[in-house]
């Protein structure tokens, strides 16, 4: 058996080709990030003279020095992002874990009705405009942190993953045993079900952590106050202002254009901000990847 398996291996030459294909694409996926790191460590003068270089002629720490010296806005945005990520991920874990557990139990009489409430939102939605009008005019979320937290808190897809997880990993017998011991439905959930559901909760928690960290869309719609702009949206705003100057090149020579330009971080500093927004993800990455793959398999099994 073992011998047959080695026999079925690709030849040395084709194995090399396979390795090259996978390695080249893998590098193509990581390289842009490395490149942005390099740019962030390039001397600003060298950048405006030579453009973005893979091996710069002059290195510099100036960008990072600049950011940490004048980085009030950046620090504030970083704080906002951390805050909404932590609060948002916890909130969505609470909402999703409870809802999904109830609809996973066959003893819950209305489980089909509530499953339908969740599933239907995957099939049909009111669209951006009615959501925007309701969130701003009725719920008054404009320019509040809740505008960055609430719209992402629940997601029917995560509920379905979690429901499947409960169904496949929480045996009925455990729940029944808990009840015979006199514990109520809630007690059983908190002291028996949740502890054995940690892998599922971790998966959902990571999904939503990533969702909050990377979100710029809600800030685009709902946040005007510069004190409430999260990191990704800050980067987006800087990018838009740059583009505005480029497309209105008549402006860039004028006093107004110069004034706008002077408020924007220089090339290397902008790239340094991109690096700072990405590094936490890259550091948490090995951890993420493991749970993502297990999350995919959880999602693939349907209960």
């Amino acid at each position: 058996m073992a011998k047959a398996r080695t026999l079925n291996q690709p030849s040395r030459a084709s194995n090399t080709i396979l390795n090259v294909i996978a390695a080249v694409f893998s590098i193509a996926c990581v390289f842009p990030f490395l490149f942005v790191i390099i740019i962030s460590f390039t001397n600003e003068k060298a950048l405006s003279r030579d453009g973005y270089r893979i091996i710069p002629k002059e290195w510099s720490l100036e960008a990072y020095r600049y950011i940490f010296k004048t980085g009030d806005q950046l620090l504030r945005s970083f704080g906002i992002t951390v805050l909404i990520t932590v609060v948002g991920a916890l909130l969505s874990l609470v909402l999703i874990s409870h809802f999904a557990y109830a609809i996973s139990r066959s003893s819950f009489r209305y489980r089909n009705f509530f499953s339908f409430i969740a599933i239907f939102t995957m099939l049909f939605n009111g669209g951006m405009v009615p959501s925007y009008i309701i969130n701003t005019r009725m719920l008054h979320l404009k320019d509040t942190l809740w505008a960055l937290i609430l719209p992402l808190a629940v997601n029917a897809f995560y509920i379905m993953i979690m429901r499947t997880f409960y169904r496949t990993t929480v045996p009925d017998a455990i729940v029944e045993a808990g009840k015979i011991d006199g514990a109520g439905e809630l007690r059983v959930f908190y002291s028996v079900v949740l502890p054995i559901s940690l892998p599922g909760l971790a998966t959902i928690g990571l999904f939503s952590t990533l969702g909050y960290w990377n979100d710029w869309f809600n800030a685009l719609l709902y946040i005007d106050n510069p004190n409430l702009v999260p990191l990704q949206a800050l980067l987006m705003r800087i990018e838009n202002s740059m583009q505005f100057l480029v497309t209105n090149s008549a402006l860039s020579g004028s006093g107004q254009g110069m004034a706008l330009l002077s408020t924007l971080p220089q090339d290397s500093a902008r790239m340094a901000m991109v690096v700072l927004a990405t590094v936490p993800i890259v550091l948490a990455y090995p951890f993420f990847q493991r749970f993502f793959i297990s999350g995919l398999t959880v999602g693939a099994v349907k209960g």
């Binding site: 209305y110 009111g126 719209p151």
Partner: peptide, 30 residues
């Protein structure tokens, strides 16, 4: 009353669905 604990568990996310999914669906009459 027999399902009250389960109903309590689905309540918060159900309110969320009503506010952030179903109200906008009503809003499409715009």
């Amino acid at each position: 009353s027999r399902n009250k604990w389960f109903l309590l568990m689905v309540l918060p996310a159900t309110i969320w669905f009503l506010l952030f999914s179903y109200l906008p669906m009503v809003g499409t009459i715009i």
